[in-house]
Design a protein around this nucleic acid. Sequence first.
DNA 1: ATGATTTGACCGCC
DNA 2: GGCGGTCAAATCAT
Length: 322
Amino acid sequence: MEGVAVQGNGGGRSMKVVAELGRVLELVRQLEMHMHAASQSSSSVELCRGLVAQIIALTDRSIGMVMSSSAAAAAVAHFADAPPALLSGTPSPLSDVSDQTFRTNPKKRKTTARWTSHERVSATGGTEGPVDDGHSWRKYGQKDILGAKHPRGYYRCTHRNSQGCTATKQVQRTDDDPSVFDVVYHGEHTCRPAAIPAAKRPHAQTLLQSLSAGLTVSTDNNFLTTAVSTVPRTPENRQAAAQSVSPPLASPVASDSYGLVPSPCPVTAGYRDWPYTGDLQEVVSALTTAPAEPEPAIDPDFMPYYFEFDPTFGMDQAILFP
DNA sequence: ATGATTTGACCGCC
DNA sequence: GGCGGTCAAATCAT
C-alpha cells in the first residue's frame, strides 16, 4: 500500500506540505508563547521540548516531500537549515544541514519514487541517540558500514504492521563528532498517532479550558488543523491567538469563548473513542457540557493538545495529540 | 506475556 | 564477491 501523498501528482502533496508548514508555524508561535513562561515553570520547559520535537518532525517531513518533487532544490537549501537552527538555542556548526548525498550525487537518489530526507542532528542531553523526532520507531537492523567508524542503525515505523506505515529511517553516528548523527528518512508516515490512553485523558472541562486559553485554527481546502495551546489566559496571549489564526482576527479572542471557524465547518473532535460531531462551535459547546470524567492528575494550566483532521483519513475521526 | 532490540543469516544489486 | 539493506530467531526489557 503506497501512501496517498506518494502518488506522482504534485497537487495533493504540495497541499500537504503547505498544511504541514502551517502547523510548523503554529507550533513555533506556541513555542514563543511558552518560552516566556518557561522561566517560571519546569513543566513549561517540558512543553517547549515537546513542541520543538514536533516542529523538527514536521519540518523534516515537509522537507522530504519538497525534496521528492524535483523542481525545488533552491527551496530545499533554504528550508533545510531550519530544523537544527531550532534544535538548540545556541547556534552551532551543525546548523548547516543539507542533503549532502543529494548535492554531490543528485542522480543516485532518483531510483525510488518515495521521498527521502537527510538530516544531521546532535544527541540529546548526555544520553545516547539523536533527538526524538516525534515518531515511534522500531529498530530492525544494524550494519557496519565500510569506511565508517560507527555502525548504521535501521529503523521502521512502529505502526508498520498495524497501519501499513512504510516510513523508515537510518541513523548513523558521524565519524568526526560521535555526538552528532546523520539521519536519513525514507518514505512518508501514513500512520496516525495513538489516541491518548484513557487514564491520561483530561476531562472535557479541562479541554475546554485549553480551548478558551488559546486557539489557533488554520484551514485550507484539504486540511484542517486545530492547534490548542494551554497558555495562561492573559490579554497578550489572547492577542497572539487572535493573530495566529488564518485569517487573523481583528480583535483578541473575547473572554472565555473564541471566534473564527469558517462556517459551516463540520468536524468531529474529541477523542478517538469519544467523539463529538458537528460544527466546530457545536463541538466546543458539547465539550462545555460534557459529563465530567474522573479527573486525572494533570496540570490544566500546562496541558497542550491539538486536534488534527485530515480528509485523507476520513473526517469521521479526529486525533488528539498530546 | 508482550513488545523491543540484538545479531548473524540471507538476499538483491553493482 | 562484496556491500548495504532486511529478515528473523534469540535475547532483553517491561
